[in-house]
Design a protein around this nucleic acid. Structure first.
Lengths: 129, 129
DNA sequence: CGTCGTGTGCTAAATTATTAGCAGGGTGCT
DNA sequence: AGCACCCTGCTAATAATTTAGCACACGACG
């Protein structure tokens, strides 16, 4: 019934999903207090329930409260987020995206990280050929 | 007046912005036909007008019709999209994101691209030190 | 010239999203 | 037991979104 709509997330829903992906799992209270302008408790719970109905979340009883987890694995969600980003901002070019990442946070990348990345690229080269 | 609301994009608005960023610039008709389930013409125009009011778009008269362009440069929009993605899915780790990109589309990266990326990393190393 | 097609602006209505508020249930504390 | 607190589920109201529909402008063309 609400199957075809399930891909569409509203603003708040998106925010909530982001929080949960960021944390891995979260209770209603946790979600609430990380929301930009915390709405009422009920509001948060209502949306968690909706997200669960839509199939984006599931919950687990943890003692007296619910803990919400994403349905899709973080990997899958990542994957599709990356794909979307690539298409929207980089004409689908992986190279462009990687370049932007390096450029953006270059100061934050430690030599160690850079080394590991260099190695990843080496490996990709070998596999590609 | 509508300044503080201007950050919040609704679902449709997001879709439209994505399309325009992807294309660089677009007319109402172009936007409409790329929308998942094309709504009426008026609907699209109304939202383009709203987005313009909110300051996300501006338009240029091109002959008989309007061509809409993003207000924020693609670079800036990229930047913030990347930042968000990093935080949400990679714990802020650039390395993780790059690794995921390489992993995901490895088959699509040509040797040439890989070489260029390797070089980028080399350069980052030198700058970092 | 009339009219068809495609563009625009505007506004009011329909649809969705978001919130507040009430009615429990359970646990711990005095 | 009686009370305070935090959790749940629900429903109805409010706020925001998305849409359709009308009025008008302009160029192309029979």
């Amino acid at each position: 019934m609400a199957k075809n709509k399930s891909i569409h997330l509203s603003r708040r829903e998106r925010q909530i999903m982001d929080i949960i992906y960021e944390l891995g799992r979260a209770t209603a209270a946790q979600v609430r207090c990380r929301l930009p302008d915390p709405p009422s408790y009920s509001a948060v719970r209502a949306m968690l329930r909706l997200l669960e109905e839509k199939g984006h979340l599931r919950h687990r009883q943890d003692g007296p409260r619910y803990v919400f987890l994403p349905t899709l694995s973080r990997d899958k969600a990542r994957q599709s987020a990356l794909k979307q980003l690539l298409r929207t901002f980089f004409d689908g070019s992986t190279e462009g995206a990687v370049a932007a990442l390096l450029d953006m946070e270059s100061s934050k990348l430690s030599p160690g990280e850079l080394d590991r990345l260099a190695e990843l690229i080496e490996r990709a080269k070998k596999e590609g050929r």
